[in-house]
Design a protein around this nucleic acid. Structure first.
Lengths: 329, 329
DNA sequence: AGTTCTGATGTAAACGTTTTCTGTAAGCTA
DNA sequence: TAGCTTACAGAAAACGTTTACATCAGAACT
């Protein structure tokens, strides 16, 4: 593959001129511009990003840290990130950390190694201290989950409020016995959603019953199945359950089906996240929708702004309650 | 951020020695090694990949071309690719082409620009000619869909045979009227699966009825809903349908549900791909499973082997029929 | 004509590595 | 001790760009 020197030679100009034509960074006469363009075509030349990146000391690569590819919650966010990134000549590297601290380290190192210019972390299990330290010298943004005191820019929704609204909806539909399936409260959003849940129940003076509250170890379908199975062991059952994530909710519904309990007639279910599949299940899932695409798009903007030294501010986005079949009736 | 010169100075050695310690590429005495390591720690030094990549003229980045993130078929393949890549010190860049030729061009250019060392393409709508040309000088591998005469290494299953087996299973379960929902036959696999479908029917002298064969424009849930809706317009209905992809099949089942037709009692459904969600639906989907993780893992090996100039050969993987609820009874 | 200015182009340094080639001191053999 | 090998370390070139600075021809002044 030809390099800039060969193009310069072929065109009878200096490499500086070729570079100027490539980047049209300063005026080049029409005549020489044509000569250079001709040479580029003849040699089928494409500038090496390796050289350019070294010289500019940038990689134009953004890291996107996620827990696992198989979580469909991320897909739309990633679409948003990617669109903004591509528009601004960045590429994104999807990094699956898989709860593996070593793997996470590899990715965090990449930004120190100049292999990436910034990080969007959606990985709630990330090692906070390291991230915090890195954030002092590099561009890092948290998307959808964040740390209250870490001083790392973030974008998220008001989880407490959203959960409150969802549960309030269940109450206004006449439910008096409402359960919760939640995930590990190390994650801020899990804690916030539980608080919102309790806030709604308290407001209407409804009982918060331990038998109706179950925690899961993961966010998978199977975790949802098992949580619901545990809940159903008790004779005293809630008439509606607020579930922290759609995938868990879909698992829960599957278990209800298996035990012959009708959704929503015998038990209403409300999920969270509005993943693509939540509209495809039978019954289709009522859920809280986050503006995932926009969250991705804007977090990409935040991280790139920060790379360029611009000031960034935390963003709280709006959510929306999507009512489908799993709570009707 | 410190560079290698500062480390060398701090340690009182030359940059060559520092580099040797970094890569332990040749013997360095214990004493100097310690000096260097101390300096590295003191300066909190991390070698720049930009410099290293330029010098080695490699990026250690692999491009993975997919059509859209939201297709869950890819997730496990990507897991496999990533595992092999990480093991071999490569990173992968997920590239969503979205049927956008311009976007695809950007990605193909990246390998010419040295920003990526190789490509794994799972994007069936890719511009074949360009890929073919690029493949002559660069490392490209096709995964799961391929082109018969393009001379680009590929990894796939025997789609004809797999479809044949699936349909034969429907026949042995007593079905005599069997339908097909297929996708655009520009894709080799769609054509192959249709051929397998016909082969099975012919073998058992069952009718191939146009009323029972429907094509979709896409691979989404909604496309599945609509295809089934069209099929149900006819009074004369099949008792089983072979559907080219799980997402379509899940859409079809949703429509059957909506029209009050029981699956599998009134109509059996068999899908293809064994995506994660296919086990979560009600009824859970019978489907043909491809060894997706292995396909990803091995295609990463193929592309890296090719980068290193090793010879590679096309691979045909085994498939498996996964029997679940949508065909029982 | 001499001076100044302008616009286009060239020169060379810099980005941060790896690696070949060379040098040198120490260790060994005879 | 002379001669040879070995083990280690340094100097410098190379990878392919971008860009600050220098140069230079010609235009536009006085």
């Amino acid at each position: 593959m030809a390099n800039i020197h060969q193009v310069a030679k072929q065109a009878g100009v200096s490499i500086a001129t070729v570079s100027r034509v490539l980047n049209n960074t300063s005026k080049v006469s029409e005549k020489t511009r044509h000569k250079v363009e001709k040479a580029i075509r003849e040699l089928n030349y494409a500038p090496s990003m390796l050289g350019r990146n070294l010289r500019n000391s940038e990689s134009r690569l953004l890291l996107v840290l996620i827990h696992t590819f198989s979580n469909p919650y991320y897909t739309e966010i990633i679409n948003g990130i990617e669109d903004y990134a591509i528009e601004n000549n960045y590429n994104i590297l999807l990094c699956e950390t898989d709860d593996n601290l070593q793997r996470e380290d590899i990715f965090l190192h990449m930004v120190r190694n100049k292999l990436a210019d910034g990080i969007i972390s959606m990985n709630p299990t990330v090692h906070v201290d390291k991230l915090k330290e890195l954030s002092e010298s590099h561009s890092i943004v948290l998307c959808s989950d964040y740390y209250e005191d870490a001083n790392i820019p973030y974008i998220a929704i008001d989880n407490t409020e959203a959960a409150y609204r969802a549960v309030k909806y269940l109450i206004t539909m006449g439910n008096k016995k409402i359960g919760l399936i939640n995930f590990n409260e190390n994650l801020l959003y899990a804690k916030q959603r539980r608080i919102g849940f309790e806030k709604a129940l308290n407001e209407f003076q409804l009982p918060i019953c331990d038998e109706w509250i179950h925690y899961t170890d993961g966010l998978s379908f199977q975790d949802g199945v098992e949580a619901m199975r545990r809940m159903l062991r008790s004779k005293n059952r809630p008439t509606a359950v607020f579930i922290i994530s759609d995938t868990l909710a879909i698992g829960a519904i599957k278990e209800l089906h298996a035990q012959g309990i009708k959704v929503p007639q015998e038990m209403a279910i409300i999920g969270f996240d509005n993943i693509a599949f939540s509209s495809m299940t039978t019954p289709a899932l009522t859920t809280v929708s986050q503006p995932k695409y926009q969250m991705g798009y804007r977090s990409a903007k935040m991280v790139i702004d920060r790379i360029q030294g611009l000031p960034v501010e935390n963003v709280i986005m709006d959510y929306e309650l999507i009512i489908r079949e799993s709570t009707l009736g």
